[in-house]
Computed example of a mutant assay.
Amino acid sequence: MDALRLQNVVKRFGDFTAVEDLSFSVAAGEVFGFLGGNGAGKTTSLRMVLDILRPDAGTIAVLGRAPGRGNSALLGFLPEERGLYRSMTAIDTIVYFGRLKGMAAADARAEGKVLLERFGLAAFAKTSVDKLSKGMAQKVQLATAVVNKPQLLLLDEPFSGLDPVNQGLLEDEIVRAAKGGAAVVFSTHVMQHAERLCDRLLLLARGRKLFEGTQDAARATLPVEIHLAAQRSPEGLPGVIDAQLRGSDGAWQEWTVRLQPGHDPGDLLEYCTAQGVTLRRFEQRRASLHEVFLHIVGGEAR
């Protein structure tokens, strides 16, 4: 059973369609990147999963059930707009959210102490939120999202405002949750985090899905780039779209070669070996997820 499934979901606000015919699924133990620029429909989609908003069409299944308050014990959510009760202490805040999710107070307090220790906040357990730094408060908010060890963890732009150290801590928590069997869905427009974490990803623009699949499948939509040194032009070799001469060193010429999308560089290397095309260097350049995003989403987002 999928932990989360959306089928042909539509959400409109008056004449504006925020989400259009959106379908995807996320399995237990999977880290799923929900990627798109500002206004792409990411937050609206997550709010429908949480039953904060209702879809105008389509169906949503959360752990095999319809969205609703009855799922709260199994869910964790970190909203983009962070907000805590400023007069409550760090540990009482975590306990409060644990109780909202159906946990016994003693269990929530015990798990809260474990989380504060792991996040380097054990000494601040009884400090009120308004006395904590912004980074500390964000770690407390993260603790409220995972205190119940959710089966489905939803993170909306979770890295926003975090320094590099705390970004690393959050990445560790995402990996920890997935290894524990949770399905993790996080929305972001920062591709570096998705590149490090995602098993699969979805690219969204103007409420429409433009791509869903693995990172390798996403990169396969771009031409493959090879840097090589050869004694003759690689133009005309199988799969080569074009070749640009970068320089020369005696008899050796440095080329940047673009292969057709999805073409295996190993096939080109094997052909060169078989045909006696002498190579001194053969390096594949791996396209970044940022480049993939611009290729697939860029024009549509504009």
Results as ranks from 00 to 15, higher is better:
G266Y: 03
L228H: 04
L245V: 10
R258D: 03
A28M: 11
D56W: 12
K131T: 09
L155M: 13
L228G: 07
I94H: 07
P265G: 10
R54H: 13
F282H: 07
G250K: 04
L169N: 02
Q138T: 03
Q7T: 15
A90C: 12
V297F: 03
L74S: 12
V292T: 02
L210H: 08
L204I: 05
S72R: 12
V224N: 01
S25R: 15
Q167S: 08
A90F: 11
K101A: 06
T188K: 01
T144I: 08
L228V: 06
L50C: 12
N166A: 01
R99E: 14
R176V: 10
L269E: 05
V49H: 11
A40Y: 07
L289K: 05
T43G: 00
L22F: 13
S128M: 05
A57Y: 07
D264T: 06
I60R: 01
E81Q: 10
L35I: 15
Y271H: 14
T127V: 15
P67V: 03
R54K: 15
F159L: 02
V19Q: 09
D264E: 14
A27T: 15
T188C: 00
L132C: 12
P79H: 04
M136D: 04
L197S: 03
C272S: 02
A122W: 03
A145P: 04
A301Y: 05
N71D: 04
E235F: 12
L35C: 09
G213L: 08
A205T: 05
Q138S: 08
